[in-house]
């Protein structure tokens, strides 16, 4: 019971700190999980994050995995819910206000100002992922090939992922 409460508190804090996405909260999350509560060692934390990336879904799934380590299935549920609920409620509140001022000049200016920043952050996130995932020229070729095909065709992305797995099995063997 105590461990579930602690999980809820830790991930609720990370939820509200994750400005711009989960990546920005990782240092704080690692500090709380590794140093403060000793739920995992640093290498275990990195491995769990990698697993969360390998699974489909948002990259907040590390909270699911840490929750499971600490308290089994209930822990996984609490870790997941705590990671998304505080920030989700805040997003709902802000978007209501945002929608109300749809025609207001200041809103149009703010929207025009935040969209390019958001776009740069997405590209930076992609660069971070590419650096984390690729450790040789072959892997870089897979990444840039997938990016190019994704830009130029309407091929379903799952085909590109399957192609990546296939190339990994053949090319790295």
């Amino acid at each position: 019971m105590i461990s579930l409460l602690l999980l809820a508190l830790v991930f609720a804090e990370c939820s509200l700190l994750a400005i711009g996405g989960v990546a920005s909260t990782l240092p704080e999350m690692a500090h709380l999980v590794v140093d403060v509560h000793h739920w995992a060692t640093a290498p275990q934390f990195a491995a769990l994050f990698g697993l969360g990336q390998a699974a489909p879904g948002p990259n907040m799934l590390i909270s699911t995995l840490i929750g499971e380590r600490v308290a089994g299935l209930p822990g996984a549920l609490v870790g997941t819910a705590a990671m998304i609920t505080p920030s989700g409620m805040l997003a709902l509140t802000v978007s209501r206000i945002w929608d109300r001022f749809e025609a207001a000049p200041w809103r149009r200016i703010v929207q025009a100002a935040i969209t390019p920043i958001s776009s740069g952050l997405i590209l930076a996130g992609a660069a971070y992922l590419i650096r984390a995932a690729d450790h040789d020229p072959f892997a870089y070729a897979i990444s840039f090939g997938a990016a190019f095909i994704n830009l130029r065709s309407k091929l379903h992305p799952l085909w590109l992922l399957a192609g990546g797995v296939g190339l990994g099995l053949v090319g790295l063997a």
Binding site: G50, I142, G171
Partner: peptide
Amino acid sequence: IGLAAAASGLMLGTG
């Protein structure tokens, strides 16, 4: 490794 490489490329394409 191949999966992670393709997935990161996909994110770049969308960006």
